[in-house]
Write a protein that binds this DNA or RNA. Structure first.
Lengths: 208, 208
DNA sequence: AAATGTTTTAAACGGTTGTTTAAATTTTGT
DNA sequence: ACAAAATTTAAACAACCGTTTAAAACATTT
């Protein structure tokens, strides 16, 4: 029963080493370009161990995908269904949290875009099962504001704008930096700025 | 010299058939997942013809990439360096043009994201060679507005916001539709709405 | 310490990949 | 109509892919 790990060595277990490597390789190049031998090399283990622990490349990817989605869906669910906070509070909390998350995991947007590209429907399933946006208190608050004559457009625009303003800079980052439009350290400053700016901009949009 | 096409059959030439098919397959699944045999099947030609006309898969991809980038860089260059139009005019023109373009080529954002992911630097090279944004009259106008006390942040935020508000809905489309957050025809309405809304929102941001 | 169970390894597998070959077919120039 | 050139084809290629195998190495139980 050598496979039962204690709490101390669970992070260094082969299984966890493979998952960690897989996250790096999958998010770095996408599913198709990520080769099992790349993952094995990154994890510094024998190729066969990937199949030994995860049966197949696809199963491994699904596990990584499930864990990643679950982690981030749970967080947003708590925020957007908090009945004690205002719309502005929620926007501020979401922007703050997700920009912070993307600063530490800047390759995450590529992971999701690649998952969408691959034609998998695991991501939308995860969202629809929880009726994340449509059943949220966040949406109710948006609709309440519309009845006050504000926001003469579909409420989903707010969701799209918020996510777009959060995520897009990270997608465009290599273009901006490599083209010399901005420097790498400038980018970090700008992103830090945006933690305050994006909620202000969204507030303007919601009060139009 | 059968390879010299007349004007009439140039669209039906094997070379053009391959490029057309390659655009579909590459943008649909990304470089790695797009197989040469997929492209041949899409073009309804023999696999060997791809190499006969384009030497290699990579060369073919580069040609497609170059043409796609060139086409869209030229357009934006004309708009942002027009000295007879206001900032608001430019934003309106860019938003109108690129949302229109994305309505007809909704897979384009995935193509570019995939190119960024692949680690190629063709795209940033194209942008930097022309100093697209940094040498633009558009930037001069933004800086002029800053001197009036508006926009207390890096001007590149306007560029990022504009592109994000244009492009992001198309990236999120499969998520929004498949999750049941919006319907497919609703999406088209919302995008059409956004042609007018995005310039309004950006004007608000620029006058803050 | 012997037996049993678990993990790791090197090697090989069948299939797919991009590419090349050489022959067949079609088009062009004279 | 004939020769030359260009195009298309089926087949094969070597390299790479995900996966399997069987033996070795290691750990645990009795």
């Amino acid at each position: 029963m050598a496979r039962n790990n204690t709490i101390t060595d669970i992070d260094n277990s082969t299984e966890e080493k493979i998952k960690k490597a897989a996250r790096i390789v999958f998010t770095g190049k996408g599913y198709a370009a990520a080769k099992v031998r790349d993952i094995a090399a990154e994890a510094d283990i024998n190729v066969a161990l990937v199949n030994y622990y995860f049966r197949s490349k696809e199963k491994l990817f699904e596990i990584i995908m499930d864990e990643t989605i679950k982690k981030h869906v749970e967080k947003i669910q708590n925020v957007i269904n908090d009945e004690s906070s205002t719309l502005e509070d929620k926007v501020e909390a979401i922007v703050e949290h997700y920009i912070g998350l993307l600063i530490e995991n800047p390759e995450l947007p590529y992971f999701f875009v690649n998952e969408i590209m691959s034609g998998s429907n695991k991501l939308p399933k995860m969202v629809s099962e929880n009726k994340l946006f449509m059943n949220s208190y966040f949406l109710k608050q948006l609709q309440a504001r519309q009845k006050k004559g504000k926001m003469a457009f579909h409420p989903v625009n707010i969701l799209v704008n918020m996510l777009g303003l959060i995520v897009f800079p990270f997608l465009a980052r290599p273009l901006l930096v490599q083209s010399g439009t901005i420097q790498e350290d400038e980018f970090k400053q700008i992103i830090e700025e945006r933690k305050k700016l994006v909620p202000i901009w969204l507030t303007q949009i919601m009060n139009q």
